[in-house]
Amino acid sequence: MESGLNFVDLILKASLLVQLVMLTLVGMSIASWAIIFQRKSIISKAMNHTKKFEQKFWSGMELSKLYNEISARTGSPEGLEALFVSGFKEFARQKKSSNQSTGLVIEGTHRSMRVALSREVEKLESSLSFLATVGSISPYIGLFGTVWGIMNAFIALGEVQQATLQMVAPGIAEALIATAIGLFAAIPAVMAYNRFAKNVEKLESHYINFMEEFANILHRQAANSVEAK
């Protein structure tokens, strides 16, 4: 026995407002998936770069040589490289500019790395707020379309003498599709946001730990240079 209800027909026969709601939700879903693939690529790349740079940094390579190697590349450094370049550049500048105390040199270096850290985390978190917004409001937008569609279905039902389930079913079904599309847009967005937020938090923790360890290394170098004098 074939059903008299067709998904495409229900969408086409829905009221204009419900169709606009569905179109809005579909657009939000498409934008969400585009951001999901983009963020997945960027965050995965950042995690891989973090591992590779940490291996090179802790391999015993001279800091000045590592700095020159990164600076010679085209394009701006990213992730841990950005923190390293920012910190080492400020450290060298502070040491050359004046005979400041070790504490002041490290404080300026630390401040420079904190600025770089903020920029890198901001890059990683870009567009995540959109996923959070889609995940939180899509069900409500879909519910609005459903309520509006059911209301119109019952208004039309009240205008006939004899009401049957067959008469009201299509109107309710086409209204419920709006809620289904809302959930279809919201669920992937929420799942992706939670995963990406967790990965960004891990990366930020790596960045902070590296920043503190690097600052300690520079502090020992500055202290040794002062003692040598």
Rank of each mutant, 00 (worst) to 15 (best):
32 S>G: 05
7 F>V: 12
27 G>L: 01
42 I>D: 05
39 R>Y: 02
7 F>G: 06
10 L>D: 08
22 M>D: 03
20 L>Q: 03
26 V>Q: 06
7 F>S: 07
24 T>A: 09
1 M>I: 11
19 Q>L: 01
26 V>I: 13
1 M>S: 14
32 S>T: 09
1 M>W: 13
13 K>D: 15
14 A>C: 12
41 S>A: 08
18 V>W: 03
10 L>E: 15
2 E>S: 11
19 Q>C: 06
40 K>I: 00
4 G>Q: 10
31 A>V: 02
19 Q>I: 00
2 E>N: 15
15 S>R: 15
4 G>F: 05
3 S>L: 14
15 S>C: 09
3 S>Q: 11
6 N>A: 10
31 A>Q: 08
4 G>C: 07
41 S>V: 05
11 I>V: 10
25 L>G: 02
42 I>V: 09
18 V>C: 03
13 K>Q: 09
14 A>W: 14
3 S>Y: 06
31 A>F: 05
35 I>C: 00
41 S>I: 08
35 I>P: 12
20 L>P: 13
16 L>D: 12
14 A>P: 13
12 L>Y: 09
6 N>G: 12
41 S>L: 11
17 L>V: 15
15 S>G: 14
32 S>Y: 05
8 V>Y: 13
32 S>R: 01
23 L>D: 09
2 E>R: 15
32 S>E: 07
16 L>Y: 07
22 M>E: 05
42 I>T: 10
33 W>K: 01
